[in-house]
């Protein structure tokens, strides 16, 4: 049997992932749109996977330099993105007990 080109398989994954993203993101409450952007920043830092391979496995100075720089840049987003999202979401949490108290007052 003829083999399917990996690009086609990738394309299938791509299209389905867009569908999933579309449906999941429409359900995000508008109040959390800023945390959404911060967390998507962290998630797109998944390129760190490619950067790690490049940093660890390349041998030429060009490949090595590019790889290490890419790891550092992506790491800024991995840590910065998730931590700032957590910080913001904590702010949305604090109100829970007070909200309940306010309703009964």
């Amino acid at each position: 049997m003829e083999l399917v080109d990996p690009t086609i398989t990738n394309l299938i994954i791509f299209v389905l992932a867009i569908y999933v993203g579309f449906h999941v993101v429409w359900n995000v409450t508008p109040a959390l749109h800023t945390p959404l952007m911060a967390v998507t920043n962290a998630i797109s830092a998944i390129v760190i996977v490619g950067a790690m391979l490049a940093a660890a496995l390349t041998e030429t100075p060009l490949g090595k330099t590019m790889g290490v720089l890419a790891v550092a840049l992506a790491a800024v987003n991995v840590f910065g993105g998730f931590l700032v999202t957590r910080r913001m979401l904590e702010m949305f949490k604090k109100k829970e007990p007070r909200k309940a108290a306010g309703d009964h007052a």
Binding site: A45, I48, A54, T60, G63, M66, A70, N77
Partner: peptide, 24 residues
């Protein structure tokens, strides 16, 4: 942070063109 991702993507692409075998 968007700019970080953009630049990281560029660097990875350069590294890949330089040594495609390193990235399998």
């Amino acid at each position: 942070m968007h700019s970080m991702i953009g630049l990281a993507a560029v660097f990875i692409a350069v590294a890949t063109v330089a040594e495609p075998w390193a990235l399998g």
